[in-house]
Computed example of a mutant assay.
Amino acid sequence: MPALDRRRLLLAAGLTAAAPGTPRAGAEDEQWPLWPLGAPGRDQVSLRPEVIERSTDPRWHDRIAVQTVEPLLTVVRPERPNGASLLLIPGGGYRWAVVDKEGLDCARVFATAGVTCFVLRYRLPGDGWPQGPSVALQDARRALRLIRARAGGAGLDPARIAVLGASAGGHLAGCLAASEAPDHEAIDAVDEQSRRPDLNVLLYPVATLSDPFAHAGSRRRLLGDSPTDADVGAWSLERMPWAGAAATVLVHAIDDASVPVENALMLLAALRAASVKVEAHLFEEGGHGFGVRLIEGRPARVWPDLVLAFGRRHGWID
């Protein structure tokens, strides 16, 4: 497959200068609820779920989901599917889950390359769920299993499911790839599927929860104000058992002032020590939270093409 034309990708995703984000116009995307009988622990929380629009431009969306009680997948289907799937886990510092910037915006770019995309809206650990820090991981595992369980009937390859996580979503994607935290109780045949991705893409990930390079807000919302050393170690990606994990690509900007690039560097060292096939792209400029619509004219603008090339070499796409 030839290199992707950048302008064609941007036009397909609604990311031209006139409309730099998920367009407001157009049909609603297909959605899959994760839990057929409601999310585990739903009766033990009192929340008011809301999707908040942050964009002041009437042409495009920049939404966040807060106090989610019914996690779901939003499906973005390509015109010509190639059998590969991508679970996208947006960031939000575990305070909220981004909908567009690191979700639907990115999904529409990868869908243009033939990838069937699934954007996860997940529950947040600071909202009082009885599962504590495991609640978002519970949703991520269920989401991957649901995609895999339905893959055959949808013309998708159940052995070609990648995950792309950004910022705190990158932490969650890393946990999906490597964490041995206890699993949720199986409720149906979906939970018999493998919970591991076939390729990992971590975009400016929150990796370490240890000072001085931790993203303090993510750590606080995940583990509370005074986490123990044991909890910090258990939830830091660079300390997880990565041996046997799928091939992984890291993307980070060196000028990231929110999640220091040392997060990616520490994780890179851990992956190499675990003999995981890994590639890292560190860009001089880009800042944090750039997704696909905030990087025009910056070195990081090429990251989707680099991810697709990595996925092609490792059998995710043809």
Rank of each mutant, 00 (worst) to 15 (best):
A178Q: 02
A18F: 01
A243G: 14
P182I: 11
E262Y: 04
D198L: 07
T74D: 05
P158L: 13
G170K: 03
G92F: 00
L88F: 01
W303I: 01
D157W: 08
S167C: 11
A13Y: 06
A274E: 09
R221W: 13
G169Y: 13
A18Q: 15
W235D: 07
D188P: 06
E28D: 11
D5L: 12
G91F: 10
I254K: 12
A162D: 08
S55T: 00
A178H: 09
E102F: 11
A18Y: 01
M240T: 03
V302Y: 02
P182S: 11
A162W: 14
G244I: 10
E28M: 07
D211F: 00
W129I: 00
L4I: 14
A159N: 13
V278F: 02
E28Q: 12
I89K: 04
L87Q: 02
A214C: 12
G14D: 14
A159S: 14
N200F: 02
V276D: 02
M266T: 03
Q131F: 01
P125H: 06
V251M: 14
V98R: 08
Q44M: 03
L202Q: 03
P20R: 11
L306T: 04
I147S: 14
T112S: 15
G14A: 15
P23G: 12
I317D: 09
R142L: 09
I64C: 00
R77P: 08
R108P: 11
D127M: 00
V99F: 02
P23L: 07
W316I: 06
S134W: 10
G291M: 05
T228V: 07
R221N: 15
R48G: 03
V276N: 00
R123H: 06
A107C: 11
A243L: 09
M266G: 13
P260R: 04
